[in-house]
Design a protein around this nucleic acid. Structure first.
Lengths: 239, 239
DNA sequence: CGAGGGTTTGAAGTGCATCAAATAGTGTGG
DNA sequence: CCACACTATTTGATGCACTTCAAACCCTCG
C-alpha cells in the first residue's frame, strides 16, 4: 500500500496513516484548464485541494471588478483548507492560471479530525502563523519598497539564495499576474523590470531571467526590508 | 477569589480556572509612559502582555529607519503572545503610544499549557485566523483603495456601524500614527481628511469627528472593497 | 495565416511623497 | 497664569512614481 501524498505536506506530518487513508478514500483527481474557476468567494466549502501540477490564484474582487490577489499557489501546496476556520465558506475565489492537476479531499473529514487530533491542530496553527508572517512581510513591502524593489525581492525568492555565481530563473506564470500579485500594473512591471536590467545587469528573455550578481540585487531590494536576506520562507514548496 | 481578567479574552474562553490562576500568580503590572519600548524585534520573549489602559504600536523597521506598522493594539487586547509560535522571539517591536497600564504574564506558562490543552490551541488557531483575515483585508485596501477611502474605512471601523443618525467619534491616538498605520504620510492624511470634510460633510475639530451621513461614507469607501459593509471585525475590543 | 491574448513602449495625467514653512496645541518652569 | 519650548498638524509648492490610455509588437495556437 502506497503512502498518501498528503504525508509530504508539513501540515499532515503528525497525522496517523489511518486518517490519511480515510482522506484518500474520498479523494478526487481532476484536470483543469487555465481560466477554470474552482470555487468562488462565499461558496459553501465541501472540499480542499492539493495541487499536483500547475498554479492556482486565490483572489477577492469588488463589485466593480477590481481584484486583490491573496496568493498564487504552486504545485505541492494546499488551498481551500482554511474554510474550516471560516464557517465552511471560502473567503476567496480560486482560479487556475496554469493548466493544473488537482486532488481534492473532503473538508468535513478534515474538520472532524481537527476535533480530536490536537497535533493536527497545532500543525495547522503553525501553518497559519507562517502565512501570517508572509502577509506581514508583504504588507511591509507594499509600504516601504518601490515597484522595482518588490520585483527584485520576488526574483530573489525564485532564486537559489545560496548560489555563488550567476543564477537563472524562469518566471512561473504570466507577467500580468506577477504584477497583480505585487500590487502594480503590468506596464509598471514591464518598465521596472527594464530598469533592473539596465541598472543591475539582469538578462531578460521573455520569462527567462539571468542574474549575474545576486549580491547587487540583494542590496538593491533588501535595503528596504526589515528582514535579513537569506529569507527563503515565502514561497515554499515550489514545483 | 476574583475571576482572572484574562477570562474576558476570547482566546482564554476555553481555559480552566486553574490555568488562569497559575498565569495570574506570576503576573506583573506596570505603567508605561508614551514612547516606552516594551520589547524589540528579535528579543528573546519571556512574557506576553495585556493592555488595561492605553495603546501600543507593534512595528518592524529597516536599517535606515523606515517603519512598517504591524498593528496598533487597544486596551483589552493581548500582544507578544505570538512569540510562542516564533521560537520564543518577538518578531516586532512594541512601543507605547498612549500612556499605558499593562499586565504581563509568563510566556513559558502559556507555552506549556498549549502542549496539553487542545482547546486552547484551537482557540489560538481561531484568533490567528481572524488576524490573517484582517491582514488580507488590509492588503486589499492598500492596493485598491486610495488614501481618502482608507481613512473613511478606518472611521467606519471606529463608528457604531448600526447607528441611524449622525455619529461622533474621537481618534484614539495621533494622526501621525493613524497615517502610518494606513500606509501614508501625515501630510497626505491631513489633506485626504480635508477632502472627506468637503465632499462628505464630515465635521472635524482636532481629534473629534462627526459623521452626519454614514451611508454616504459607506458608499465612498466600501465601493472599493470586496467585503460587505457592516464589517465590524477589525478592531475588536476597543476601550 | 490570422485571431487573440500577453507584453512592451509612448505620452499624458494623477496621487502621493517630499521639502519647507506656518500654525495650533500641549506641557513645562518661572 | 503666562511665556517658552516642543511636538503635532496643516498648508503650500514641487517632484516623482505609478497609473491610465493608446498603440504597436510579439507569441502562440487553432
Amino acid at each position: 500500500m502506497s503512502e498518501s501524498e498528503l504525508k509530504q505536506l508539513s501540515l499532515f506530518q503528525p497525522c496517523s496513516s489511518a486518517f490519511l487513508e480515510k482522506l484518500d478514500a474520498h479523494k478526487q483527481i481532476q484536470n483543469f484548464k487555465r481560466g477554470k474557476v474552482i470555487f468562488i468567494q462565499g461558496d459553501e466549502a465541501e472540499r480542499f485541494y492539493l495541487i499536483r501540477k500547475g498554479w492556482v490564484k486565490l483572489f477577492r474582487e469588488t463589485r466593480d471588478g477590481a481584484q486583490a490577489i491573496i496568493d498564487v499557489v504552486p504545485a505541492g501546496r494546499l488551498f481551500g483548507e482554511k474554510a474550516v476556520l471560516e464557517n465552511d465558506h471560502h473567503s476567496c475565489t480560486a482560479e487556475v492560471v496554469e493548466d493544473a492537476e488537482i486532488v481534492s479531499y473532503s473538508l468535513a473529514d478534515l474538520k472532524k479530525e481537527l476535533e480530536t487530533d490536537s497535533d493536527l491542530t497545532k500543525s495547522m496553527l503553525q501553518e497559519m502563523a507562517r502565512q501570517c508572517h508572509r502577509q506581514e512581510k508583504e504588507l511591509e513591502h507594499r509600504s516601504i519598497q518601490n515597484a522595482a524593489q518588490r520585483i527584485g525581492c520576488l526574483l530573489l525568492r525564485l532564486s537559489d539564495q545560496t548560489a555563488e555565481g550567476p543564477v537563472s530563473i524562469k518566471l512561473p506564470y504570466d507577467k500580468t499576474l506577477i504584477a497583480a500579485q505585487l500590487g502594480m500594473q503590468p506596464e509598471t512591471f514591464s518598465r521596472a523590470l527594464g530598469k533592473l536590467r539596465e541598472q543591475l545587469g539582469l538578462e531578460i528573455q521573455g520569462a527567462n531571467i539571468q542574474i549575474d550578481d545576486l549580491q547587487k540585487l540583494v542590496s538593491f531590494s533588501c535595503s528596504a526590508c526589515s528582514f535579513d536576506f537569506p529569507c527563503k520562507d515565502l514561497q515554499e514548496a515550489a514545483e
